[in-house]
Amino acid sequence: MIRTGLIGYGLGGSAFHAPLIDAVPELELAAIVTSRADAVGERYPGVQAVPDVAALLVDPDIALVVISTPNDTHFPLAGAALEAGKHVVIDKPFANTVAEAEALIALAEVKGRVLSVFHNRRWDGDFLTLRNLVDQGSFGEITLYEARWDRFRPALRDSWHENAGPGGGILIDLGPHLIDQALALFGPPERVTADITAQRKGSLVDDYFELTLHYGRMRALLSSASIVPAPRPRFAVHGTKASFVKHGLDPQEAQLRAGARADDPYHGVEEPAQYGVLVSSDGSKQTVPSERGDYRRFYSGVAQAIYEQVPPPVAPADALACLRIIELSRQSAAEGRSLPF
């Protein structure tokens, strides 16, 4: 088993990384850097609560370090872990800038360590379902792809996510998920057009974006907004043969936040009422059962990359491409024009 240390036990660490690592047989959750020692002891009695990062990094038995901390700490913590000879997983975003991401990739290559990014939404059940439909040619030629992640959060929160600075805002928070899914389906776009703004009164960061990725005559629209009482479809894909419309989010996050185990047989199984609908060009409709989502596949892939020296489940180059699009999107929105990728 690969002894694993987790840095951070907030929402990301407690609801995602710790239970997923604990549920993957090849990994051992050995230590967590947190001030919440009581919470760790209650949930994971055999796991050591470590007071600071330095104590974790000097432990020779820790082979893999997972970073789930505020965005502006990802780069320095990942750099320190790689310098200490650890394999590293970083929660999204990979870093706050392209330059930081490139530096981490170069350092991982010099150190010969596995570096990957937790783009877990590749293993959402609805996305797996959509990817199967694309691979089967169900849409014919795809002309329009829409992926939206809406929330109703009109009130500002006292959170680092909403602090002004390079790590705050919804584009750097949810954008990596939506962009990574689009790149996984279609590859790099030709051009990017973006509209990014703050819609909530007093907001110091962006809380709305709509990105258009240009692929020939096909368009991929990626959007998130914070004042949407009735969320738009999570996915809407249209082509010459059919359309697919899917509402609702993959259930894994809600299940994990409620304390469910990731190895429960019903984990990641979506309710039939949330299934998407495939509408053929002749008007006929077909309900498409969602694939079972499974974020454990990410961590199983990380273990395989360490053991067998195969590529990690999310290549650093993929996460770097996401950051390039985010930076290009900000420039596009500021200048009011489309920009080549």
Rank of each mutant, 00 (worst) to 15 (best):
R131S: 10
R113T: 08
L82D: 04
Q136G: 02
D91W: 09
R151V: 02
L171E: 01
A164W: 08
L185Y: 04
I170S: 02
S203M: 06
P189S: 04
L171K: 02
R121S: 13
L133W: 11
I196R: 05
A184P: 01
A103M: 04
I105R: 13
K86G: 00
G175Y: 05
N163R: 15
A194T: 08
N96G: 14
D206M: 00
R200A: 00
W123R: 08
G167F: 05
E83V: 10
D195W: 11
D150N: 09
L174W: 09
L178Y: 01
G137V: 12
P93N: 00
P189G: 03
I172W: 09
I90W: 04
D195F: 12
L130D: 07
R151N: 03
A80R: 15
E109I: 04
D124M: 01
A108E: 07
N163V: 10
A198K: 11
L185Q: 07
G85V: 01
L82R: 03
G167S: 04
R131Y: 05
A80P: 09
T197G: 12
G167D: 07
G175H: 03
V89R: 01
N132T: 15
W160G: 00
G167M: 04
A108G: 08
F94S: 06
D126A: 13
A95Y: 04
G175A: 08
A108M: 11
V117T: 15
H161L: 13
R122C: 02
A108S: 15
I142K: 04
I105E: 13
D126Y: 10
